[in-house]
Write a protein that binds this DNA or RNA. Structure first.
Lengths: 107, 107
DNA sequence: CTAACATTTGAATACGTGTTCATATGTTTA
DNA sequence: TAAACATATGAACACGTATTCAAATGTTAG
């Protein structure tokens, strides 16, 4: 008899999975890379120039973002162009911006 | 006329602000604390018991979540009850769950 | 008041990870 | 082929931070 424990609270592995995603977005360099790729596919070199990061660092970050299925890459000649896998990440960012924009509450 | 629409790339400080939020949610312990407080206010002791974390650790995390205006605390007798400051965080989590639930794409 | 409970705080440690550098792989052009 | 460009990879370092422990603060009951 299989008892699915938690209905209200998400399972520990779901939490861990979500936390992994949030951790990836929790680095300013990586988050800016994500944002840069939201509108249109951008090459690694252009990301590096636009954000003033070394191509090596950008590539390291892109590997993680690819593994997390946040960004996907496609080759065009010598270059790799990266873009968002789905629209959810943009929603996540917009929601978080709304949270940050909430008026202060006196404690 | 309020233009909130992001023109193209958000400013560096906005990115840093967002990244700070995501980083806070990027730890499994902290994320589970947030989730535990989404539905109703919960006391520190109950959070600790429910998640099997030390009260000290929970309190340390709560301090950060309070500072980020993700959770707020109210005293009831000896205990402190924590709950979400606004609804946006729940939206963020739901959107992220939708992302994680996206079907795989062969690369 | 004291005692018991609930939460907070500070210091110390252990571990993960963002970044850099050097090198390797892959792709196009001469 | 070789050379030039674009990206990726691996090792090493530096830094932040999650966690633990001990002690302090705050609150209520006796």
């Amino acid at each position: 008899m299989k008892v699915v424990k938690l209905e209200r609270v998400e399972s520990e592995e779901s939490i861990a999975q979500l936390a992994d995603m949030f951790r990836l977005m929790g680095d300013a360099s990586r988050l800016s890379i994500i944002v840069a790729c939201l509108r249109e596919p951008v090459s690694v070199g252009d990301i590096a120039k636009q954000l003033d990061l070394s191509p090596s660092l950008v590539s390291h970050h892109l590997r993680l973002l690819r593994a997390a299925r946040i960004l996907k890459g496609e080759r065009r000649g010598k270059q790799m162009f990266y873009s968002a896998c789905d629209k959810h990440i943009e929603c996540v960012i917009d929601d978080m911006m709304a949270h940050v924009g909430e008026p202060d509450v006196e404690d």
